[in-house]
Deep mutational scan, measured.
Amino acid sequence: MSIQHFRVALIPFFAAFCLPVFAHPETLVKVKDAEDQLGARVGYIELDLNSGKILESFRPEERFPMMSTFKVLLCGAVLSRVDAGQEQLGRRIHYSQNDLVKYSPVTEKHLTDGMTVRELCSAAITMSDNTAANLLLTTIGGPKELTAFLHNMGDHVTRLDRWEPELNEAIPNDERDTTMPAAMATTLRKLLTGELLTLASRQQLIDWMEADKVAGPLLRSALPAGWFIADKSGAGERGSRGIIAALGPDGKPSRIVVIYTTGSQATMDERNRQIAEIGASLIKHW
Rank of each mutant, 00 (worst) to 15 (best):
M1R: 00
S2G: 07
Q4R: 11
Q4K: 12
H5A: 06
H5S: 10
F6L: 10
R7C: 07
V8D: 07
L10G: 07
I11S: 04
I11L: 10
P12H: 10
F13G: 06
A15K: 03
A15T: 15
A16T: 09
A16G: 15
L19S: 14
F22V: 07
T27A: 06
K30N: 06
A34T: 12
D36G: 15
D36E: 15
L38Y: 10
G39D: 10
G39R: 14
G43D: 00
Y44D: 01
I45R: 02
E46G: 05
S51G: 12
G52S: 08
G52D: 07
K53R: 15
L55S: 06
L55I: 10
S57A: 11
R59G: 03
P60Q: 11
E62R: 05
E62V: 09
R63H: 10
F64C: 01
F64W: 01
P65Q: 02
M66V: 12
M66S: 02
M67D: 04
V72S: 05
L73M: 10
L73G: 06
G76A: 13
A77S: 09
A77P: 01
V78C: 05
V78S: 02
L79P: 00
L79A: 03
L79F: 03
L79E: 01
S80I: 08
S80T: 10
S80W: 15
S80P: 00
R81H: 10
R81I: 07
V82Q: 05
G85T: 06
G85R: 11
G85A: 12
Q86E: 15
Q86L: 09
E87G: 04
Q88G: 11
G90D: 14
G90V: 11
R91S: 05
R91H: 10
R91A: 04
I93K: 03
H94R: 11
H94N: 09
S96C: 13
S96F: 07
L100F: 12
P105R: 05
P105L: 06
V106N: 06
H110Y: 08
S122N: 11
A123D: 02
I125T: 06
D129Y: 00
D129E: 00
A133S: 12
L135Q: 07
L136S: 01
L137T: 08
L137W: 02
L137H: 01
L137I: 12
T139R: 15
I140F: 11
G142A: 03
K144V: 12
E145D: 12
E145M: 15
L146V: 15
T147S: 13
A148S: 12
F149A: 07
L150W: 11
L150C: 09
N152S: 13
L160C: 13
L160P: 03
L160H: 05
D161K: 02
D161G: 02
W163C: 13
W163N: 12
E164T: 00
N168D: 06
N168F: 01
N168S: 07
N168V: 06
E169R: 10
A170V: 11
P172S: 13
P172R: 12
P172E: 15
D174H: 03
E175K: 12
E175G: 12
E175A: 14
R176G: 06
R176A: 04
R176W: 09
T179A: 02
T179P: 00
M180A: 11
P181G: 03
P181D: 00
P181A: 07
A182T: 13
A183S: 14
A183V: 12
M184V: 08
M184L: 07
M184C: 05
M184Y: 10
T186Q: 14
T187Q: 04
T187K: 00
L188E: 00
R189L: 11
E195G: 13
L196V: 13
T198P: 06
T198R: 10
Q203K: 07
Q204A: 06
W208E: 02
E210G: 08
A211E: 15
K213G: 09
K213R: 14
V214E: 03
A215V: 03
A215Q: 04
A215P: 04
G216V: 08
P217S: 10
P217G: 09
L218A: 03
L218W: 02
L219A: 03
R220C: 02
L223C: 12
L223S: 07
L223E: 01
L223D: 01
L223W: 02
L223R: 05
P224C: 04
G226R: 11
I229L: 06
D231E: 04
K232P: 00
G234E: 01
G236R: 01
E237W: 09
E237R: 09
R238G: 11
R238H: 13
G239D: 02
G239P: 00
S240Y: 02
R241E: 02
I243W: 04
I243M: 07
I244E: 00
I244L: 10
A245I: 01
A246D: 02
L247S: 06
L247R: 00
P249Q: 09
P249T: 08
P249H: 07
P249L: 05
D250L: 10
G251D: 10
G251C: 11
G251V: 08
K252N: 07
S254V: 13
S254F: 12
I256D: 00
I256T: 01
I256V: 14
V258G: 04
I259M: 09
Y260C: 03
T262K: 14
G263W: 05
A266C: 12
D269A: 12
D269M: 11
N272S: 07
E277R: 10
L282S: 06
L282P: 00
K284T: 09
H285Q: 09
W286T: 00
